[in-house]
């Protein structure tokens, strides 16, 4: 059974009515975050607070309430995620440099003895990766990546060899190329659009997954060098 309304002519009055409250919410949240940053002396806290500013941005984008707006939320999200990651890394390295070499290189070993952590990760990771593969694309990538990441982080004891890094990074680079090829096929040979669709969807999926899981590898702090 299909719906009575597939694509309306104009945006529905409900969404139009919600536009102002949504934009004002976004602006208010952004304002709160910005004010907090403006008197925040601590750099780490400022970094955490930018998360709120990002939420304000996403609300404003979502307030348009069309399919286009939804697909614009996704890039906004990704940008947010990407920048927060790069910047937190820079902050850490800055502090480590500031401390000089007297700091312990190895982080504290985590002696957690929770039942959840021994059984849950594998289960969750498998489900998430499977579901992510089913979804494909960005969403799938983020979900599967989250699963792998969780798995890697909760398995602190086992070492990941140094060349895992290059392997993962390389795989995601190749996946990106797949995606580019898919994108080109769409416009160069539109007849093969299905192939292009699959290339794009799975290229982005693999790429995002591996990128997200690299966070986990990074969380290991130190590679076991061979």
């Amino acid at each position: 059974m299909t719906a009575t309304v597939l694509v309306p002519n104009v945006v529905s009055p409900v969404v139009v009515g919600l536009f102002l409250p949504a934009v004002f919410t976004g602006i208010t949240v952004g304002l709160i975050g910005l004010l907090a940053i403006s008197y925040q002396k601590n750099d780490l806290h400022a970094l955490i607070l930018t998360d709120i500013v990002g939420i304000g941005m996403l609300i404003i984008v979502a307030s348009v309430g069309t399919d286009l707006a939804e697909s614009l939320v996704l890039p906004g999200l990704v940008v947010e995620l990407a920048e927060i990651m790069a910047i937190s890394e820079i902050l850490m390295s800055r502090e480590i440099r500031k401390q000089g070499k007297s700091v312990e290189l190895f982080p504290l070993p985590l002696n957690l003895d929770m039942e959840v952590l021994t059984t849950a990760p594998v289960f969750f990771a498998v489900i998430l990766v499977a579901y992510g593969a089913f979804l494909s694309g960005f969403t799938g990538g983020a979900i599967a990546g989250g699963g792998i990441l969780f798995y890697v982080i909760s398995r602190i004891a086992r070492g990941v060899p140094s060349n895992t890094w290059e392997g993962l990074a390389g795989a995601s680079g190749i996946a990106w190329c797949l995606w580019l090829v898919g994108f080109l096929i769409f416009f160069v040979a539109p007849d093969y659009w299905l192939l292009a669709l699959f290339l794009s969807a799975f290229g982005v999926f693999i790429k995002v997954t591996f990128k997200a899981s690299l966070v986990g590898v990074m969380g290991r702090e130190e590679f076991k060098k061979e």
Binding site: L44, I48, G219
Partner: peptide
């Protein structure tokens, strides 16, 4: 989830 993971790592 990923963002909070990153932030917690930094913290």
């Amino acid at each position: 989830t990923i963002i909070s993971m990153i932030l917690l790592r930094a913290i």
